[in-house]
Write a protein that binds this DNA or RNA. Structure first.
Length: 677
DNA sequence: AGCACGCCGACT
DNA sequence: GTCGGCGTGCTC
């Protein structure tokens, strides 16, 4: 039916039953302002009740057959939800049985009126684009074709079929020096060069990295290649005003380099030419809020939408990337000439006596470290922060547990009172629950205890401790031992003269689906901070993993891990969806999936809060079907309240059903009492 | 979320 | 015969 100008509006509401477009008539006074992307105010259900929303499209003819209400107002003419971004968000939400508005929250930062006004009034012209830099360390035909391919796309090559435009890039495993003297990981410089090359071709680039240290390195690399007016930094840590300003800048017509973490992938980049993702195996790439999308998925979807180039770069390949390579979606690109970092396994044969014995360092490693210390700093990677990661009863040897919450106790520093790793409470007057003894002893070694021991083993060396709570950004050169927990390793000028990966055994002992690939990633990332020919030693790990590392072929590990997961039907060989809720709701959700090929369900198992959990495993090809059926169950669960049992529970406040896609945690099999939160 | 509609029990 | 309880369902 002809209804005049109609705005199709996405409501700003987390309710799954409102997660679709609503049609509103646009009154003539608002015709010029009600453009796609603007924030609007609309009536909902009854006059007087208003909801906020975003205009997704403006059409002459709505789809809705009934009587249309009128748009109440246009909040601002800034087109903050770009139609391309809406489409991306819609696809990402549908893949994960989530709502579009959950993702809009990530994509569009909270409005800042002053910032917006000055942007609307401002001048959006930019200076000249930079010239294309060379991309160091890679064969020109490998990487430059990424950028050049953009022009063939304009000539009409179908984006999804053009070959060689989606690559898994193995990063150069060594630090590099910028002109200003600052040292950064080579990987960050490569990504910056790729982005600037893209910009010089008149196209935007997005680079997403997991943490703020990567982001700072990236910003430093870009600073010497391109004027800051061409760079926009999108991350949630900045103050609201600058965050909104950086976001609005990506709405301009001029191409821009967008750097940031997860939400950078949802920034509206004009003429997008490149998406690059650093270290996709890092779980900081998983959005903690519902529906928990992974940056890698956003990158893949957006690449498909736009036909831009895609680079997934890392030192150690994730099984997810391995899968994409094996199905032919990505092609692997290596530095040229090949730079392989060999990580040498060291038999855990502790010296019989002397300071190395005290520090529990194998004698061969002790020799390497003492020699390396003469030429520069040495990195020692350990598994855990603090002094002792575990406290045990001195009588019976049982792990000491918190008397309040049963969490394990740890010793934050030498001589301190043990405290609970879960609730943090101090274990004053602790007694063993097994044998009633009041005496405890520390067990295991954390970063500070290792540092103490190493300081004694290598007299005269300066010892620096870096961990997640107090990370050290840069350590000085010279005779320095840097003891660091994984992920907190500082970069040093010229690279470390040796790297010692000390707690391989205990890191691998963790019960998790992804232990092996996580450990390999941590080790390879630490190894990449070493000087080019410096020795890298791994203590306490043998077998096929050690062989692959010793030959400098970590991708063999990804390949084998993926093969194992295929036989076991574990992710990423299949997708998974966790169903959590009342046993009724979970059972109904399972029923809704009956009759689908390539779908099986594990569970339900009871959780400790009375709810149950099932794990749905599905072939990758079944994704949209399973997600849409589960979404329908979520809508039903939110719409109809559960059949009230005449017994106890009168009204439930928690949602009856929660669905979470592609979360490996259910397979991790560590029954932590915190799982309920 | 809010808010209206409707069906059932207790009231003037 | 009618008032109002809250369970049920819809929102352009």
């Amino acid at each position: 039916m002809a209804t005049g100008v109609v705005a199709r509006v996405l409501l700003d509401s987390p309710l799954p039953q409102l997660d679709r477009l609503f049609d509103y008539r646009v009154p003539p006074a608002l015709h010029s302002q009600a453009r796609p992307g603007v924030r609007v105010l609309v009536p909902l259900r009854s006059a007087g009740r208003q909801a906020k929303g975003f205009v997704v499209e403006v059409v002459d003819d709505g789809e809705f057959e009934g009587v249309l209400s009128e748009l109440d107002d246009v909040i601002s003419v800034a087109p903050v939800l770009h139609p391309d971004i809406y489409r991306l968000i819609r696809r990402a939400a549908d893949r994960a049985a989530g709502t579009a508005s959950d993702l809009v929250r990530l994509a569009v930062p909270p409005r800042q009126v002053r910032v917006e006004k000055s942007w609307l009034a401002g001048d959006h012209s930019r200076g000249a684009l930079p010239v294309a830099p060379t991309i160091d360390g890679y064969a020109q035909h490998d990487v430059s074709s990424l950028i050049r391919a953009e022009h063939t796309e304009l000539a009409g090559v179908a984006p999804a079929t053009a070959p060689g435009r989606r690559i898994a890039l193995t990063a150069i495993p060594e630090p590099t020096r910028l002109q200003g003297g600052e040292w950064v990981p080579s990987a960050q410089r490569t990504l910056a060069q790729l982005a600037v090359a893209t910009l010089s071709a008149g196209r935007s680039a997005i680079i997403s990295v997991p943490d703020y240290r990567d982001l700072d390195h990236l910003a430093a690399c870009l600073a010497e290649l391109v004027d800051s007016e061409h760079v926009s930094r999108i991350d949630a840590s900045q103050p609201p005003a600058s965050r909104y300003r950086a976001f609005l800048r990506t709405l301009d017509d001029a191409p821009v380099i967008i750097i940031g973490n997860r939400s950078a992938l949802l920034a509206p980049a004009p003429r997008l030419g490149l998406i690059a993702l650093w270290d996709d195996g890092d779980d900081l790439h998983v959005e903690p809020h519902a529906p928990g999308v992974h940056s890698r998925d956003l990158a893949l979807l957006r690449q498909e939408d736009t036909g831009c180039a895609l680079v997934l770069a890392s030192h150690a390949r994730s099984t997810d990337v391995q899968r994409l390579i094996e199905v032919g979606w990505l092609s692997a690109v290596e530095p040229s000439p090949r730079r392989r970092r060999r990580i040498m396994p060291t038999v855990h044969q502790v010296s019989a006596e002397g300071p190395a014995h005290q520090a529990r360092i194998p004698s061969s490693a002790w020799k390497v470290v003492s020699e390396a210390l003469a030429t520069g700093p040495v990195l020692v990677q350990v598994a855990r922060p603090g002094f002792a990661p575990r406290v045990a009863c001195a009588e019976c040897g049982e792990t000491a547990r918190c008397e309040r919450c049963r969490g394990p106790l740890a010793l934050p520093r030498a001589g301190s009172t043990p405290s609970c790793r879960w609730c943090g409470s101090l274990a004053v007057g602790w007694t063993c629950s097994t044998c009633d003894s009041a005496r405890w002893r520390s067990a295991g070694r954390g970063s500070t205890r290792t540092a103490d021991e190493l300081g004694r083993a290598f007299p005269g060396a300066r010892v620096i401790v870096s961990d997640g709570a107090t990370p050290v950004q840069r350590a000085p050169g010279g005779r320095t031992l840097v003891v660091s927990t994984r992920g907190a390793e500082p970069i040093v000028p010229g690279g470390y003269s040796a790297v010692l990966l000390l707690d391989g055994e205990s890191m691998l002992a963790r019960e998790s689906l992804r232990v092996v690939e996580d450990c390999v990633r941590w080790w390879c990332n630490a190894a990449a901070l070493a000087a080019p020919d410096a020795p890298v030693l791994l203590v306490g790990v043998g077998g096929w993993v050690a062989t692959a590392l010793a030959t400098g072929r970590p991708e063999d590990i990804a390949e084998r891990e993926l093969a194992d997961r295929r036989t076991l039907r574990f992710p990423p060989a299949v997708r998974v969806a966790a169903l959590i809720g009342t046993s009724d709701a979970v059972a109904r959700a399972q029923q809704s999936l009956e009759g689908l090929d390539g779908v099986d369900v594990l569970g339900p198992v009871a959780l400790d809060d009375g709810r149950v959990r099932s794990i749905v495993r599905l072939d990758v090809a079944r994704g949209s079907e399973v997600a849409s059926r589960l979404k329908a169950e979520l809508v039903r669960g939110a719409t109809t309240s559960a059949p009230a049992i005449p017994g106890r529970p009168p009204r439930r406040r928690v949602p009856a059903l929660r669905v979470r896609f592609d979360d490996a945690e259910p397979f991790d099999d560590h029954a932590s009492p915190r799982a309920s939160s």
